[in-house]
């Protein structure tokens, strides 16, 4: 359960169906819904990064909004100041977020569990203020933020929203495959060994500091790519869009989807984008209910009590349980 799923025919078929559905989707729904799915994928990519860090390497972060912001702002600045194309800017944003994550991973090496959570909490709370700072205003646009035009369609027969959707789909599928390969590699096993028993891992000759900081970097890179895509979809970056609650969304999405999983991130992304709409609809019918995010907080605590493995983790357990029942 705490390892990535092995390749089985069932998994491959499921993956193929998901991909086919993903490709067909923009032709079935409106541009607005397509745009919402793009947002969900942007979130999901950041959550995938957090899954790698927390689920597979055991390091906590309630400050991934900082790396999300790093990616979003890098992409916006490269486009706005240097006139780069959106896709080159994503690569640059990924690299810059990786460096940020790696650097933050260095002090994080000495912090365990709760203390790392506290340090990343501080990072998330301080991020909007740093983005507003006068000295960077020339680059960041200060309180105003930066306007980023939506990338032109890759082929002229589809709309800009559809095009961005396919770009996001391509990126998230690639990252999921890359993550799967990474976790099945020597480095991936080292990451999980450190999570399960840091001292034993060190004794077996794993370069613990290097693996942990690199994992932090990779995780931040994912968050940065998610942030860049988020910026393209919403066409705007501003400091207050990256407040502490963004870190909460990422963490919550990861946990809801299943933090020790790769596909779970997709459920997390969909949850973060569509749950508030859904809750809003319910509220229109029942006006006495508290606002979506308060219900959401209650929901979050209930999930922790009753479904601590998240959607994907529960699915895995259900399958194992069914198999055992069937085979007698």
């Amino acid at each position: 359960m705490d390892r990535p799923n092995p390749i089985t025919p069932g998994l491959l078929i499921g993956f193929a169906i998901a991909v086919a559905f993903g490709i067909a989707l923009p032709h079935l729904v409106s541009d607005f819904i397509t745009y919402q799915f793009t947002l969900a994928m942007a979130w999901a990519i950041a959550m995938l990064g957090l899954n790698v860090l927390t689920g597979y390497n055991g390091q906590f972060s309630i400050g991934h909004s900082a790396f999300f912001a790093a990616g979003a702002y890098s992409a916006a600045i490269f486009i706005d100041h240097f006139g780069w194309g959106p896709y080159e800017a994503i690569v640059a944003a990924a690299l810059i977020s990786f460096v940020f994550g790696f650097l933050f991973g260095l002090p994080a090496l000495r912090l365990e569990g709760l203390y790392l959570a506290l340090a990343t909490f501080a990072l998330a709370v301080a991020t909007p203020q740093l983005l507003k700072f006068d000295a960077f205003e020339h680059w960041t646009g200060g309180v105003q933020g930066i306007y980023v035009p939506k990338p032109d369609p890759i082929v002229s027969s589809i709309s800009a929203d559809q095009s961005l959707y396919y770009v996001a789909l391509f990126i998230i599928l690639s990252l999921m495959v890359i993550t799967w390969c990474l976790l099945h590699s020597r480095s991936g096993r080292a990451m999980m060994a450190i999570r399960d028993n840091p001292i034993a891992a060190k004794t077996m000759g794993i370069n613990t500091p290097l693996v942990k900081t690199t994992t932090f970097g990779i995780s931040a890179m994912y968050a940065g790519i998610g942030g860049a895509l988020f910026t393209y979809a919403s066409e705007f970056v501003s400091p207050d869009a990256f407040n502490f609650f963004v870190a909460v969304y990422i963490l919550v999405g990861s946990v809801v989807g299943g933090i020790v999983s790769i596909p779970g991130a997709i459920f997390g992304g969909l949850f973060i984008v569509f749950m508030p709409n859904f809750a809003q609809d319910i509220r229109l019918a029942y006006e006495w209910l508290p606002p979506p995010w308060a219900i959401f907080g209650v929901f979050l605590i209930l999930i922790i009590y009753f479904v601590p493995f998240g959607v994907w983790g529960s699915l895995e357990r259900l399958i194992v349980w069914t198999k055992r029942k069937v085979s007698g």
Binding site: F60, L114, V252, V255, I259, W293, L300, I301, I304
Partner: peptide, 26 residues
Amino acid sequence: VEDAPILNQIMVFIGLLVIFNNMAGW
């Protein structure tokens, strides 16, 4: 969640934070 993993404990506190913040706003 006394004996639960640290992550679950953190999530409960985050949940409380979200609830109080939004309830106050509401």
